[in-house]
Design a protein around this nucleic acid. Structure first.
Lengths: 202, 202
DNA sequence: GAAGTGATGTGACTTGGTCCCGTCATCATA
DNA sequence: TATGATGACGGGACCAAGTCACATCACTTC
């Protein structure tokens, strides 16, 4: 429990996202971000270990949440059912307030390879947390990694759709649907192109 | 075609890996690497866009190779067969000379999160290249991404085994086996823990 | 041999990130 | 009310990564 409950972190995140959107990630210095938030470079780096992390903070909590949900899943659940439970749990923690923020975040990350690196790393961390939790349930390799991978793919797919302001479904619904699609796709890996002539893939 | 055919790049890579192994990635400066290679910091940064890239250079070639092999696969091939062809192609390009180098590379990357970030990013690049190539074959989403993902997982799994000096199988054999295991695992995603009581997962 | 080309060297510069220390507001306790 | 502890913030020195402009040198080609 912080004593002043200052919103320094939040101010820094907002200032950073604003500046990154306006001038790009590279063209924005840590000093600029801190200035706009009414703080200093030192304070910025006290809150975030590096400049990129200001956009990714809080992912550790997500990893713990996913792992906890998998651990808490009923014991007869299949690997994919446990992963589905984890998706239910994590998607429920995204308030609608964050949709606009998420929507602004995506192009910034897409436009900078350093941020894409960090995103790829964080993604791996989330998948690893799920994999470990599945291991603790007794799910062997490579089933555990695979189930976790499907979960992560479903999560990001649903996240993209949810962040799109035209979307009307809930994050949870989108994630469940994405996971179903992925499960169905596993059956098509050994399937030759047949009846429907696929044009450009969607 | 370089005129002097100087082996500056190779000297830099070897010096870097040596120093990273000796003192760690963080504790090694670009100047040190360049010095040991008989060159300067500027020359290092001319060959590699940043300090990390000295350990990952050449991955773009691998991405092109994977994509080309998928494109060249016979047209009735299933997605996973095309991916298998890509694994055959890429594993064949790893001469046994590189085993020791690869074995030394792994712990260095494992010991530094910046390098893990870069590795995760490169991994995504390889998967993306395979996914695109599968799209061009008419494989729809999310089947294409999934097949590519299995291919990449099989590649890295086999790479780890191949880099282990106690391993006797060829890289190609290991990759094929890893892909088979992954394909088999897709059938276990909806399967409850049954007969064999799994202890610690392997 | 003269001109061109590409690899390397030199040094100045910006910025990210670390570290140490000082300041100040808040809280707990006497 | 005084006092000490704690935690957030500011200031500035410092190092290393990475960029840039310019000079040099080896080798090729005409």
């Amino acid at each position: 429990m912080a004593r002043w409950e200052s919103n320094a972190r939040e101010r820094l995140v907002r200032a950073a996202l604003d500046l990154f959107t306006e001038q790009g990630f590279d063209a924005t210095t840590v000093n600029e971000i801190a200035d706009r938030a009414g703080l200093t470079k030192t304070t910025f780096l006290r809150h975030f270990p590096d400049k990129r992390e200001v956009l990714f903070a809080g992912q550790d909590m997500h990893a713990r949440l996913l792992a906890a949900a998998i651990t808490a899943a009923p014991s007869p659940a299949t690997p994919l059912e446990a992963v589905g439970a984890a998706l239910d749990a994590i998607t429920a923690t995204f308030p609608d307030d964050r949709r606009e923020f998420s929507a602004r975040l995506r192009p910034v990350i897409a436009g900078n390879s350093e941020l894409q690196e960090r995103a790829a790393f964080k993604r791996g961390g989330l998948a690893g947390a799920m994999t470990d939790a599945l291991h603790r349930r007794g799910v062997p390799e490579p089933t555990a990694s695979l189930a976790a991978e499907l979960g992560i793919r479903a999560f990001y797919r649903a996240f993209d759709q949810w962040a799109d302001p035209t979307s009307r479904q809930t994050f949870t619904e989108l994630a469940r649907h994405a996971l179903d699609e992925l499960r169905a796709a596993t059956a098509t890996l050994d399937q030759r192109a047949t009846t429907v002539r696929p044009g450009t893939p969607s």
